[in-house]
Structures are given as C-alpha cells and as structure tokens.
Write a protein that binds this DNA or RNA. Sequence first.
DNA 1: AAACGGATTGGCT
DNA 2: GCCAATCCGTTTC
Length: 201
Amino acid sequence: MKLDAAYYPNDNVVWLAKDLLGKVLYTNVNNSITAGIIVETEAYFGIEDKASHAYGGRRTNRTETMYCMGGIAYVYLCYGMHNLFNVVSSVDGDPHAILIRAIEPLVGIDIIEERRKMVSTKASISSGPGSAAKALGIDRSFNAKILTGDEIWIEDQNIKYTEQDIVATPRVGIAYAQEHALLPLRFFVKGNKYVSKPNKI
DNA sequence: AAACGGATTGGCT
DNA sequence: GCCAATCCGTTTC
C-alpha cells in the first residue's frame, strides 16, 4: 500500500532513513511506470548538519524545498549532470532529507534498461544516487513534487529488513563536513548487489 | 555578468 | 581500484 502523508513529517530522520529500506519507490513518467526497492539511503539532519545544503539555516531557491513539510521530493543537480533524489521529511521549517542512493529494479525493468542503456543484471544500472534517479526517470522537474500523488510515490509492500540485515556507515562524498563526516548515517541492505561501492561490506 | 565547485559516474589500468 | 571528465545552479561581483 502507498505510504500516506502522515508517514513523512516524522522528525526522526535516522529512523526514517532505515525504515525506507525495503520500501518501493514508484514513478509514472508519461504513463511509463517503473519502481525499485530502496536498498541504500543517507540521512541529512538539517540546519546543524555540516553535510547538508541547509547547514546553518541556509535558505536559497534550491534549498527552499527542504524547508517544506515532509512528504515531497527534493531533487537537485550534482556535478552539473546528475539528478539526486531525496525524500523531504520532518515538519515545515525543519529541513530534513533522506538521499536515495540505490534501488533494486522491480517494476518496468525493460523501461529502466532502456533509460540506463544496460541490462538489469548489471548492478550499476541503479547503484549510486545519480544512477538510481535516472533508472526511475527522475529529473529536476520532480523537485518539490508531492510523494503521495500519482507521478511519484512510495509503497510498503511488506518487504522487511531486520537490524541484522542493515549496515550503517559514514556518508559518501562529504569529507568537507568535518566532524559530521564520520557519522554513521548511511544505511544499506547487507549483501544487496545494487548497493553502491564506497565502503561496501 | 562571470566564476566556482560539487550528497558522482564510468572508463581505464 | 583509481582518477579525471563534466556541466549548470548557486553564489558573488
């Protein structure tokens, strides 16, 4: 079943980042429906997080999306070419976000293969945040879209991972975040082939 | 109006 | 496993 709007305003972003593992992320792009199981996430805990775009309460046209009420998408461009998809959580004014770093292709696999120009047996088809977003057809036009609508949504299909199935490591690519660089806020499903490479166990 | 630099990827060794 | 290409939004002048 589709997660409803009440799921997202939760202010425990670490709990949410873990809870999203096993949930199924859907997109409908021009009536092409694709979906994947979320197998890797990172938590960004807001204005006190030196790795967050919203660190220090920074508000720009870009970061404004994160300050909205939880339950919308935050999609931004990285390295001038990669669209990175985040779930905005917590309440209005508290810019929490959860980066979706990898999915396991589940629905519309032929469409995903065409978008990525490779077969779904290759782990790199949806491994890493840029690849996962591209696999699902997510670009910047999805920024600020509501996650309970009919273009992008998340379902609970009763795929459950226990604490023993989940690994926590430092987040990737945020060495500039000083003492926050080593916090174990990246979560992934142990042994899943679509989890991205850095620090893979 | 112009410079800057990145929550990465993928190709090459 | 390592390293370098690669753009555009953001920031600053």
